[in-house]
């Protein structure tokens, strides 16, 4: 009597499991096909001791002796457009401060020389304002009377930066990342077209450097082949690749000072996109991929970006230099988990 349900259960179970297996097998079927002319992938078979030796080698690695020929790379791979600045829209007050030219002329324009008028204004009734909270006549020995409370008068809205009527004389030598970014932005569409409209000299002019004979220079023999990611670039063996990641982890750990404690709630792990030049310098501002929704985690996010900047330039050990394509961009995850032990 009780056989029926069990049997049917067994059948149902078998059918379901069969279905699951079929799903798993078939589900993997439409995996992308390999290219016909696939390049060979280097594979190393190493013993545990060999692997340890590799790791040891990382730690004692000599700093880069000779930087690879940069111009070549620069020509081959135009610098990626600078990643968007961390806070997408800088607060207005900051903007204001930005707007002001560097050290403004000693004689600023007529407008209120020392702004922050609305904030600074309150003082009319200062004493009354400040007195009540902590009166505090000192006990017997009258040393220094307990401090009357101090109220932040105002959020010192970064004083409406004196806006110069006429912009001060240009300082051509000053590097202006915004403009470069804009130009690169403009140049982007052209980039899509077959290299024709790609005007290196324009960018070079903007950057303020002279890129003589950009692409004509041949790749030096010592320099590794650095083809496009999909083509025949040198590939690291899995163990070397793991060692590189371990080295990067150590490097960023030594540059990172996370805030002392973690806010309550779900843990936030900042992800920072980092782009390098072949010599280990940053090729653009690090980009925070996942700004925290909870402002309490903001200092953590900022500490991650600070770590990337502090580690710039990275002294990439020579053994990784030939494989630039594989570390040209990295996403670094900064996990505060073990900060508290």
């Amino acid at each position: 009597m009780s056989d029926q349900p069990s049997k049917s259960g067994l059948i149902a179970s078998g059918a379901l499991h069969g279905g699951l297996l079929a799903f798993i097998v078939l589900g993997f079927a439409p995996a992308p096909k390999f290219d016909d002319a696939s390049e060979s992938v280097p594979v190393t078979t190493v013993t545990q001791t060999q692997f340890n030796e590799i790791m040891n080698g990382e730690k004692d690695a000599q700093p880069v002796k000779e930087p690879p020929p940069q111009p070549t790379h620069a020509a081959a791979a135009p610098p990626p457009p600078p990643s968007p600045p961390m806070p997408p829209t800088p607060p207005p007050e900051v903007k204001a401060a930005e707007a002001t030219p560097p050290p403004p002329p000693e004689t600023p324009p007529p407008p209120p020389p020392r702004p922050a008028p609305p904030e600074a204004a309150p003082p009319p009734k200062p004493l009354a304002d400040d007195a009540p909270p902590t009166p505090s006549p000192p006990p017997k020995p009258a040393e220094a009377p307990p401090a009357p409370p101090i109220k932040p008068v105002a959020e010192a809205k970064p004083s409406p930066p004196v806006r110069p009527k006429t912009p001060p004389p240009d300082k051509p030598e000053r590097f202006k990342p915004d403009q470069v970014a804009k130009l690169l932005e403009k140049a982007k569409p052209d980039e899509e077209k077959p290299q024709k409209a790609y005007d290196l000299s324009a960018i070079a002019k903007l950057i303020g450097q002279s890129l003589s004979k950009p692409s004509a220079e041949p790749t030096s023999a010592a320099a590794p082949a650095q083809g496009l990611p999909t083509q025949h670039a040198a590939r690291m063996s899995p163990s070397l690749s793991a060692a590189l990641d371990a080295w990067l982890t150590d490097a960023y750990l030594s540059c990172w000072t996370p805030p002392p404690t973690m806010p309550d709630g779900d843990r936030y792990v900042a992800q920072v996109r980092v782009s390098f030049n072949p010599d280990g310098t940053l090729s653009g501002q690090p980009a925070l991929l996942n700004p925290p929704s909870d402002p309490a985690w903001r200092p953590h996010a900022e500490s991650a970006v600070r770590a990337v900047l502090k580690c710039n330039p990275l002294r990439v050990p020579p053994q990784y230099l030939p494989y630039f394509e594989q570390w040209r961009t990295k996403t670094v995850h900064f996990d505060p988990q073990s900060a508290l032990g």
């Binding site: 109220k151 932040p152 900022e302």
Partner: peptide
């Protein structure tokens, strides 16, 4: 009366700013 601005060199932006006014005797508290 004292005011300050804190600049983050990573972003180049001002990240904090405030102004305080009090009795001169409380300068240390400011």
């Amino acid at each position: 009366s004292a005011q300050f601005r804190l600049w983050d060199t990573a972003t180049g932006e001002q990240v904090a700013g405030q102004q305080y006014t009090t009795d001169l005797a409380n300068g240390r508290r400011v």
